[in-house]
C-alpha cells in the first residue's frame, strides 16, 4: 500500500497581523495546514493497521519546506518529495495541481492519494479534485471516516444534509475533513530519527515542465487585490466585580439600541 499525502506549507494564520490592510508575513512561523495534518495522520493509521506500506509526503512550496517537512517525517511519513524552485513561486490551485500530478506520475505505483478538504489558508478545495481529474482517478471528498481493505476504500463523507457512505476501487484521491482524527505529535526520538529519512527535491525540469508552465506564469487566476476588510471595533473591555461589569455591559448595549426586540 503506497500512500501519497499532499501537504501545503502555510504561515501560521493565528500569528498574522494586519498592517495597512495587508497581512504581515515576516517572522510568522511556517507550518503544514490543519487538514493536511489530518491527512498524514490518517495515512499513518492506515499503515499501522495494515502493518505494511509506504507513506510519501508531497509538497510544493518555498525552500523553508526543508525544515517544515521534518515534522511530517517524524510523525510517520517514510519519505518526502519536495517541489522547490523559484519557478514554482506564485502557483495557484491549477498550477499547483499540474505540478503535483506530474510528480505523482513520476513516483508511480501509488494506491491512495490523500489531501486536506481545503488548505488552511485558501480553503478552495481545488487541488484534490484537479489531481483526480489529471490522474483520471475517482475522487472522494469531505471524508470523516475511512476504511481501506482488499484494494478498495469505503468512506463516510460529511455532506450538508447527510452522511454519505461511498466505495471505490484503488487507486483514488481522498480529501479529508478535520473531524476524521486528531493528529498525533512527534516524540523527540522520532524527530531525531526523521533526519535520516530520504527527502528528494524536484524542479520543473525534473517533472518535464517548462519554467513558464508553473508558478506565477502558469496560474489561471489573476489576483487583482488581496486586502483585509476594514472593520474597526470599539474594543471596550469590562473586568472586575461581576455585578458592576454586567451593569456596564447592559448599559452599553441599551445605548447601542441592540437590546430591544
Amino acid at each position: 500500500m503506497n500512500i501519497i499525502v499532499c501537504m501545503k506549507q502555510i504561515p501560521d494564520l493565528q500569528q498574522i497581523r494586519i498592517k495597512e490592510r495587508k497581512p504581515v508575513l515576516e517572522g510568522v512561523p511556517l507550518i503544514f495546514g490543519d487538514m493536511d495534518k489530518n491527512a498524514l495522520e490518517e495515512a499513518v493509521r492506515i499503515k499501522e493497521k495494515m502493518g505494511t506500506g509506504k507513506i510519501t509526503v508531497l509538497a510544493l512550496g518555498p525552500a523553508k519546506l526543508k525544515d517544515t517537512i521534518k515534522e511530517a517525517l517524524a510523525i510517520g511519513a517514510d519519505e518526502a518529495v519536495l517541489l522547490i524552485d523559484p519557478a514554482f513561486a506564485g502557483s495557484d490551485s491549477a498550477a499547483t495541481a499540474k505540478a503535483l500530478a506530474k510528480a505523482i506520475q513520476k513516483m508511480g505505483g501509488y494506491d491512495l492519494i490523500l489531501c486536506g478538504e481545503g488548505s488552511t489558508d485558501n480553503y478552495s478545495g481545488q487541488v484534490g479534485p484537479r489531481l483526480a481529474e489529471l490522474l483520471d482517478l475517482p475522487q472522494i471528498t469531505y471524508v470523516r471516516e475511512l476504511e481501506v481493505a482488499d484494494g478498495k476504500i469505503k468512506a463516510v463523507r460529511n455532506m450538508e444534509e447527510s452522511f454519505e457512505v461511498v466505495e471505490a476501487d484503488l487507486p483514488a484521491v481522498v480529501t479529508v475533513a478535520a473531524e476524521i482524527n486528531t493528529p498525533r505529535l512527534a516524540s523527540l526520538k522520532q524527530i531525531l530519527q526523521a533526519a535520516r529519512k530520504p527527502v528528494q527535491t524536484w524542479t520543473p525540469a525534473d517533472l518535464g515542465l517548462a519554467g513558464d508552465a508553473v508558478g506565477a506564469k502558469g496560474t489561471a487566476v489573476e489576483v487583482l487585490s488581496n486586502l483585509a476588510p476594514e472593520t474597526a471595533r470599539k474594543q471596550v473591555v469590562f473586568k472586575g466585580e461581576l455585578d458592576e461589569v454586567i451593569g456596564n455591559l447592559v448599559d452599553a448595549l441599551i445605548k447601542e439600541g441592540v437590546l430591544g426586540r
Binding site: 494564520l13 494586519i18 495587508k22 485558501n122 489576483v223 487585490s225
Partner: peptide
C-alpha cells in the same frame, strides 16, 4: 484568503 484575514479579488 489567508483563512479569512483578507478578501482576494480575482479574474
Amino acid at each position: 484568503a489567508f483563512g479569512g484575514n483578507t478578501v482576494a479579488t480575482g479574474a
